[in-house]
Every structure is written in structure tokens, then in C-alpha cells.
Design a binder for these strands. Structure first.
Lengths: 140, 140
DNA sequence: CTTACTGCAAATATTTTGCATTTGG
DNA sequence: CCAAATGCAAAATATTTGCAGTAAG
């Protein structure tokens, strides 16, 4: 019920340090919603100038290990990071126009159940991007 | 009913040229089943030495445009190419051990229908990789 | 012959790594 | 103080592009 999980607590629980960079990266991810490492870096630098891109990458990995952020692959290249406390959602990526829409995970209910039953494989729906053609691009 | 669609015919229909490289790349993709551009390059070179990696990339793009090959993103980095005439399948990628399994597209039936109904978005199941944990990794 | 295609090398883009310096606790 | 974290620059990876020479039709 605490809304945002506590960065400080999780770091201390592991004997890791609370640094301004870590707080800045987490808050940038929360503010941006969905973003690439590059975009997160730009956002962080609006507040603190010198932060290095390699610190962004290391920090995102760490935050993901701590369960505070998650990433999804929406296509080639740029992974997208978002706060872990956001409600889970599917990503619909149009491979014509490139737009990304979100959809309820409930839509994948049967898929998840069947894949688990048939293959013993437990799908991670939050991480899964679905490619296809969006409504607008289908009309043409 | 022709089994493999005809490369030559499709190239000529567009006024493009039939080159040994194009034939080699297509046959390598058909032989390998699933492969990254790098792996395809290696396979092609077993037959013809000097073929350049940039030709592989250019040729794969072309073959995809012609509808002879398809690619799927199974994770970060390497896209995987396969012949377009193979039967469609889903990819199950374990993000613990990295193994890739195939699953019937029928498992995604409801997902496809619902996403189309609710969002007007037409999922491309062949292109969609599903991340998760495989049976073996779940047991631990 | 004409120009599409290829090989090559260099440019991009993205992420990772080694190491010296800084800094949280 | 001291190990952990950062900044920086270089390396590693993956893909793209410009251009001059080659070859398909």
C-alpha cells in the first residue's frame, strides 16, 4: 500500500549506497512513464548536469534487480523502462507507423494459461511486446 | 503448391537482378531455419568465400520485402530470420536460461481476436516473441 | 553498354568495461 | 578511512552508408 516502493530501504537492505544518481534515475523513470536509456539520461541531466550514460545503464540494471523498474523490448534497438509499480500492461507496436499502444493484460489470459498448460512455460506478459498493424494503418 | 516461392520470378517482376549472393542468402536461411544475420553470413561463406556482411543485411531486407523471409525479435540484439513458407509459430524465450521454444499460433487465438476487437490492432503472431520462464527454470 | 549490385572501409548507434577518482556511511 | 559508485575514455557489438569497381541483363 506504500505507492512507490522505497529505494533507500531496498538499497540498505543489500548494503548498497544511496546516491543522488540512483534517486535521479528512478524519479526520471517514474516521471517519463516509458523511456529509453538515452531519454532517461537526457531527463536526468535536466536536473544534474554531469551524469554519465554508463551510470544510467548501470543504475537501470540495479533498479531492475531491486524490482523498482522493468523493461520491455518494443522492437529493434531501444529497450523501454518504466516503474515497476505501474499497473501491468501489454504493448502493441505498429510496425507500419511505429506507434506504441497499451492494452490490458487480461486480453492475454487464455494465452498465458494455455502456454503454461501445454509447455510448462510461464509467460511474462509485461515484458512481451506485440507487433502488428494498428487500426489506422489497417484502413489504408 | 510450389513449395518454395520463386526468387527469380519475384526479382524479375520488379526489374531486379538475380545474383549468386541473393540465391545463397535465401538458401542459407531455408537451411538454417532460424538464424541471425551473423550466422547466415557464416553459412553463406561456407559456399562462397568473399560475401560481405553488409550484403547479407541488404539482401535480408530485400528478401523480406519480397515476402520470402521473415524476422522475429527474440530478445535484445540479434533478430532471427527464417523462410516465410515455414509454418507460423510463436517463440517462447526463457529469460533465465535463454532457450527458445516454438509453440503453435493457435494458442494465441483469443489474444489475437480480442486485441483486434478491442483495439482494432491486428497482431502479427509470427513476429511476436514471448518472454518468460521455461519449465526447467521454474522448478528451481 | 547501362546501372544495379557488391565489397570495402568508415560512420553510426548502442551498450559494456577497465581504471583512476570521488564519496557515502 | 575504505569499499562502493561514478566519470571518462576506450572497447565491443550490431547495423548502416558512401563510393568505386564489378557484373547482370
Amino acid at each position: 500500500m506504500t505507492g512507490t516502493p522505497d529505494l533507500r530501504a531496498r538499497l540498505r537492505a543489500r548494503g548498497l549506497r544511496v546516491t543522488p544518481q540512483r534517486e535521479l534515475v528512478l524519479s526520471a523513470v517514474q516521471r517519463l512513464g516509458h523511456a529509453s536509456p538515452e531519454a532517461i539520461c537526457t531527463e536526468v541531466r535536466r536536473t544534474a548536469a554531469g551524469v554519465n550514460i554508463s551510470t544510467i545503464y548501470r543504475t537501470l540494471d540495479l533498479l531492475e534487480e531491486l524490482g523498482l523498474v522493468r523493461h520491455a523490448h518494443l522492437g529493434p534497438g531501444a529497450p523501454t523502462y518504466h516503474a515497476a509499480d505501474e499497473h501491468a500492461h501489454l504493448h502493441l507496436v505498429c510496425h507500419v507507423c511505429g506507434t506504441v499502444a497499451e492494452a490490458e493484460v487480461a486480453l492475454a489470459e487464455q494465452l498465458v494459461g494455455r502456454v503454461l498448460a501445454v509447455h510448462g512455460f510461464e509467460p511474462d506478459v509485461e515484458h512481451m511486446a506485440i507487433a502488428g498493424r494498428c487500426a489506422q494503418c489497417r484502413e489504408r
